[in-house]
């Protein structure tokens, strides 16, 4: 906006300055008034619980006595004591192998699922961007998996993946692709694959939709120019389409990464308690509620928050470096 002002001829700027200034102040004030309720709500539903959780993580609070916790410093994160034999024993989340296993599971899950969803989503978006009859219907239909509540789709897939009565095993057997029924959610080798299949099935439409929005922003004449110049379609994709939808894609990936790293419901329903699929959220809840280690779970929740924040910052930072490279060229 400021840039636009500066481009105006000097004379008109001089005369309008006072008014514009007033107008801008007024606009700012209105904006503040409109934003205030939102900020208030955010403070209540996001900032306060977060602050509480972080506070709990430095105490020894238990669920049976929420207000009687005492300050214990970093003990929930890391503490040690020296035995009489001189051996030092370390305790706390930071040396808890279960926690690091959960961190590893979360990253593995987030990277693989978001990777697949981005590629598949982009492919679907490219198809949907083409002109064909019934496009509106197909666009609506593709959203169905995304519209189903996660709990419902997790249960649904749980039954389809069931080793004895599941339809997936039945189909694969009849097609001759497998020789005996696979215990998808039970076997340690396939538990993560099962979770990934369901998540990719569910979230690809979301990615496709965001990519489609990006695709529709691209002016048609660029493609026409490319066609006139006889550029190969694959080159068109990599040199025109991809760079132009990149900002939209980046935002979509941030959304999905945030979402994937705090995955809970799908795993909680499909493969609860499997060490192969337990993520940070699942293990934090387990400690908070099931194990009566409220403070310990709070420490894990705090770490989860820190890890997700750092990952997103890292991602934005890396993304920006790349973007500047583009501009320089």
């Amino acid at each position: 906006m400021i840039a636009k002002e500066q481009q105006r001829p000097l004379a008109s700027r001089e005369t309008a300055r006072g008014k514009v200034f007033d107008f801008r102040r007024q606009k700012l004030r209105t904006a503040r008034v409109f934003l205030a309720p939102m900020i208030l709500v955010l403070l209540c539903v996001a900032a306060w619980p977060l602050a509480r959780t972080i506070y709990f993580s430095f105490t020894n609070t238990s669920l049976n006595d929420l207000y009687g916790g005492q300050w214990v410093g970093f003990d929930n994160y890391l503490n040690w004591r020296t035995l009489s034999s001189g051996r030092v024993i370390y305790r706390g989340t930071l040396v808890d192998p279960d926690w690091w296993n959960a961190v590893w599971n979360t990253f593995r899950f987030a990277i693989i699922s978001v990777g697949f969803e981005t590629v598949l989503g982009l492919m679907i978006a490219l198809v949907l961007n083409a002109e064909f009859r019934g496009r509106g219907l197909v666009r609506a239909a593709i959203l169905v998996p995304w519209a189903i509540p996660t709990i419902v789709s997790a249960r649904l897939w749980g039954w389809m993946l069931h080793d004895q009565f599941g339809i997936i095993n039945d189909m694969l057997l009849k097609l001759g692709l497998i020789s005996e029924k696979i215990a998808w959610t039970a076997s340690p080798d396939t538990a993560m694959i099962a979770v990934l299949i369901v998540d990719i099935w569910k979230t690809t439409p979301f990615m496709a939709l965001l990519c489609l929005a990006g695709l529709q922003m691209i002016p048609r004449d660029i493609y026409e120019a490319a066609r006139v110049d006889g550029v190969h379609p694959i080159k068109v994709f990599f040199y025109i389409t991809l760079p132009l939808i990149r900002p939209a894609l980046m935002v979509a990936v941030i959304f999905r990464l945030l979402d994937a790293m705090r995955i809970f419901d799908l795993i909680y329903v499909l493969t609860p308690n499997s060490t192969q699929t337990k993520t940070m959220s699942v293990i934090a809840r387990e400690n908070l509620i099931d194990f009566d280690k409220f403070a310990y779970g709070s420490a894990q929740s705090t770490l989860l928050f820190v890890i997700i924040s750092l990952s997103v910052l890292l991602y934005i930072w890396l993304g920006r470096v790349d973007l500047t490279g583009e501009r320089d060229r």
Binding site: H162, D163, Q164, K181, I182, A183, T185, A186, S187, T271
Partner: peptide, 12 residues
């Protein structure tokens, strides 16, 4: 027992 018994609860 089927390998899937490792994911069975009562109802399965």
């Amino acid at each position: 027992s089927p390998e899937g018994v490792l994911a069975y609860q009562e109802e399965d």
